[in-house]
């Protein structure tokens, strides 16, 4: 059983997103592991713990700092870490999917997991594109995957609290919405130990453009209105609310 987890290193939205020209100013933001990838790593490790096998984590190293995320994945139970040294912070999901698919092709995986989406594009394309390149089936929005005898039972979430169970033959690609358990915590002591000893394999990105989006313009959203904070004593506040309701013709 070989599970490959495709991860993404994306700009952190914990801080303000500075814009330069038609994209994010990549030099002045921190990059972090996509939060859905924490779930796909957890899902992979859970399967490995249940049925054995190996977990390979692979990602495009867009700014040359992917090692931290890979060490974290190793600390959580992945066995092998691979980075595609592209150093192209603007590479979108389409481009990354192409590079990833080319690399994964040679790994003969039984199962490929990706986070169902990432906060830097939210189009959820990475998994489906990898599946398309590799000519494999794709299922997104999974909340539990169990593997038995060459098959997987997959729980997929739909809006409105509906879940559906699928039986799928391996290999296939899944977009993980959530692992069945919250992602485990990797102690920093362990991550630091691994950082000193682990070997991260590096491969070069393939040639050739992918399809995808072209950025024309990027700008922070314009603030159009804001809430009025009503202050004062309870009486004053109540009076102001009545006044407002009246002025809108609601009273």
């Amino acid at each position: 059983m070989h599970i490959v987890v495709a991860i993404k290193h994306i700009p952190s939205i914990a801080d303000e997103l500075p814009v330069r020209h038609n994209n994010i100013d990549f030099d002045s933001v921190d990059f972090v592991l996509n939060e859905w990838d924490e779930h796909s790593i957890e899902q992979a490790v859970l399967i490995k713990e249940a049925v054995g096998g190996t977990v390979t984590v692979i990602g495009v190293d867009v700014i040359g700092e992917l090692d931290n995320a890979l060490h974290l994945a190793l600390a959580k139970g992945a066995d092998r870490a691979v980075k595609i040294a592209a150093e192209e912070p603007g590479a979108d999901s389409h481009q990354q999917a192409k590079w990833l698919a080319e690399a994964i092709q040679n790994m003969s995986p039984d199962l490929i997991l990706s986070g169902v989406q990432a906060s830097n594009d939210l189009d959820g394309q990475l998994g489906p594109l990898i599946a398309a390149y590799l000519d494999l089936p794709y299922i997104g929005g999974t909340s539990a995957i169990e593997v038995t005898n060459g098959k997987a039972m997959v729980l997929k979430e739909f809006p409105g609290g509906i879940g559906m169970r699928y039986e799928i033959a391996l290999p296939f690609v899944a977009g993980v919405q959530a692992a069945p358990k919250p992602p485990r915590y990797a102690p920093v002591s362990k991550v630091r130990q691994i950082a000193q000893t682990a070997k991260v394999e590096t491969i070069e990105p393939g040639e050739g453009e992918s399809g995808g989006l072209r950025f024309l313009k990027m700008a922070p959203p314009v603030v159009t209105g804001h809430a009025e904070m009503i202050q004062g004593t309870a009486k004053e506040i109540a009076a102001r609310i009545v006044e407002l309701l009246k002025s809108r013709g609601l009273l």
């Binding site: 102690p187 920093v188 002591s189 362990k190 991550v191 630091r192 130990q193």
Partner: peptide, 8 residues
């Protein structure tokens, strides 16, 4: 108990 985090 998170000595590694502390050291970092």
């Amino acid at each position: 108990g998170e000595k590694g985090l502390f050291e970092m």
